[in-house]
């Protein structure tokens, strides 16, 4: 299989960046997309050029490290997938593919297809957890959780933090990511005591990082490799609303 790849090249955050075009022969159908890029990089190195920098690690669609945009779609055209598990058999001989990094104000570019997602770290540190001091937990079966509820929590906990939701959103919003954590912990009895504070803290951190607002495009849900539902956003809004209404704050209209 032969491919034409148009790839975003940018040395660092200060560089202007540009597209570079590469022709690649001998692409095998059983390769993953990243293995195809490995082959390209080997060729570039052998020719004395700099390889394309891209983030990746587990290559099993679970660590959330990899991700870029292929022909305008985050993680490419296959649903519920990451680029590491996207296989070349789903492409055609002669395809022309444009590869770009996640583009969002809150994700500054590092190099080529790599962006800085540390904004996600700061949001999670603001309150995306249950404070459970080691050693203080009761017997695990003393907290009964209906199966459906545990499964719903897990559906949201599956978020891999890749950032595709932000990259897909015309507003560069991180609400699916934040909503996923809030819904995961909010579905569990253990998560209730800090539920209100969690929503307030995470939403405040999210806004501070410069992520956009949600206007219900739902492209985040469509490209999420784990199929996280926008119900998480509704849960987040509800918790945030309750936080503002019932914990002495206001809705932001007046000081």
């Amino acid at each position: 299989m032969k491919l034409t790849l148009e790839i975003w090249r940018q040395k660092d955050a200060n560089d202007k960046g540009h597209f570079e075009t590469y022709e690649l022969d001998n692409v095998r159908s059983h390769m993953s997309f990243l293995e195809m890029l490995d082959v390209l990089n080997q060729e570039l190195i052998e020719k004395g050029e700099e390889p394309v920098a891209f983030d990746h690690d587990c290559r099993e669609a679970i660590c959330g490290t990899c991700g870029f945009v292929i022909n305008g779609v985050a993680h490419g055209h296959m649903k519920r997938n990451t680029v590491c598990q996207l296989h070349m058999r789903t492409f055609n001989d002669g395809d022309h593919l444009v590869l770009e990094p996640w583009r969002a104000k809150a994700f500054p570019l590092v190099r080529d297809l790599i962006v800085d997602r540390s904004a996600f770290e700061r949001i999670q540190r603001a309150g995306g957890y249950i404070s459970a001091r080691t050693g203080s937990a009761p017997d695990a079966n003393s907290i009964l959780i209906p199966k459906e509820q545990a499964e719903a929590a897990l559906d949201f906990a599956e978020c891999i933090g890749c950032g595709a939701c932000v990259a897909s959103c015309p507003n560069g919003a991180a609400m699916l990511f934040v909503g996923a954590r809030i819904a995961h912990l909010g579905f569990l009895p253990q998560g209730q005591p800090e539920r209100v504070e969690r929503a307030k803290a995470m939403v405040a951190a999210m806004e501070q990082e410069g992520f956009g607002a949600c206007t219900n495009y739902t492209s985040c849900e469509a490209t999420c490799p784990k199929g996280v539902s926008i119900v998480g956003i509704a849960k987040m809004n509800k918790d945030y609303f309750n936080a503002k209404l019932f914990s002495g704050g206001n809705l932001g209209g007046k000081e």
């Binding site: 017997d139 079966n141 199966k147």
Partner: peptide
């Protein structure tokens, strides 16, 4: 055994029976 207790307290959504037990 302490690990399982700790993980549940942290909000790890382990698989459960319909009764709510692990």
């Amino acid at each position: 055994n302490e690990i399982i207790d700790q993980c549940v307290a942290q909000g790890v959504p382990f698989g459960r029976e319909y009764s709510g037990y692990l």
